[in-house]
Design a protein around this nucleic acid. Structure first.
Lengths: 143, 143
DNA sequence: CATGTAATGAAAATGAATTTCAAAAGCAGA
DNA sequence: TCTGCTTTTGAAATTCATTTTCATTACATG
């Protein structure tokens, strides 16, 4: 699966005439090895801790490339930082965020997806994407 | 309705021991006279254009107060600016955003609301709030 | 391997939002 | 109404994430 993603990025790079660089390889490997929802800063620090010096700007730029290439998706919660998650082909999910401990749980719901398309259509919109976040307190944080 | 909101803010201010000031009156009047989804900058400029000099910081601070008081709600779309909309008692709605012209259409959907609560409950969450945005192209922007 | 161009990184710039702090203004109580 | 205490204000400085700049480095192709 990791190999597939690497290949996917490679295809994208070739198609776009991008060069292959040490930095992009490292950033991709590190991104693929992380959990979901990593912030740019976190990824940058993770790379740094592996003694592989890469500039922050490059991490920012490269994550945008991954997004363009369809391997990553930006998620903006309410903490002022952009996070990135892995895109898994054909899978869409939304987020349940605990306002107590900041835990993020993913979920999917076909019915909601469909209702959204209907709502958009009713207003003459062609739905491109959507964002649904449910905020609340998880079991642990309800004391 | 405007009077009610003013009274509501006044009650909040009294309860919190806040002083009543010229600035807060002007900001509240201006906010209540605007359309939905105004950014802080827009509100600030609107006030400024009325020859009533009020500092930006005060506008920021005051909108936070309105939010606390329950008259306004922060909305964060994907443009990096916080916008505020009016809170209408008991009414909740979500947003349909045109990525072409940035038009924002509000909608409500009981079924989606209910499904969200169910999803949260299924994960042991106590839902506090949620945010749903559908992005797409409106009729005009589909050329 | 030389040459043109893309990518990198450090530092500067940006832009929204927040904080600082001195001055101004509200609010008691005398 | 005056006095004194405290909150609020505003301009400027600060913060913080992100983007841009630009000189340098490193791909890749002839």
């Amino acid at each position: 699966m990791i190999q597939e993603k690497k290949k996917a990025f490679n295809n994208f790079a070739v198609a776009k005439g991008l060069r292959s660089t040490r930095q992009r390889d490292i950033i991709l490997d590190t991104f693929l090895s992380t959990n979901q929802h990593i912030s740019v800063e976190e990824l940058y620090l993770k790379i740094k801790s592996g003694n592989q010096g890469i500039g922050q700007a490059t991490v920012y730029r490269t994550l945008k490339l991954f997004t363009e290439a369809g391997l990553a998706r930006e998620i903006l919660l309410n903490d002022g930082q952009t996070r990135y998650e892995h895109v898994i082909a054909g899978e869409h999910h939304d987020h349940l965020v605990c306002t107590g401990c900041n835990a993020i749980i993913e979920f999917e719901d076909e019915t909601i997806e469909k209702l959204q398309k209907d709502i958009a259509a009713r207003q003459g919109f062609h739905m491109r994407s959507h964002k649904l976040e449910i905020y609340g307190l998880c079991i642990k944080c309800r004391h």
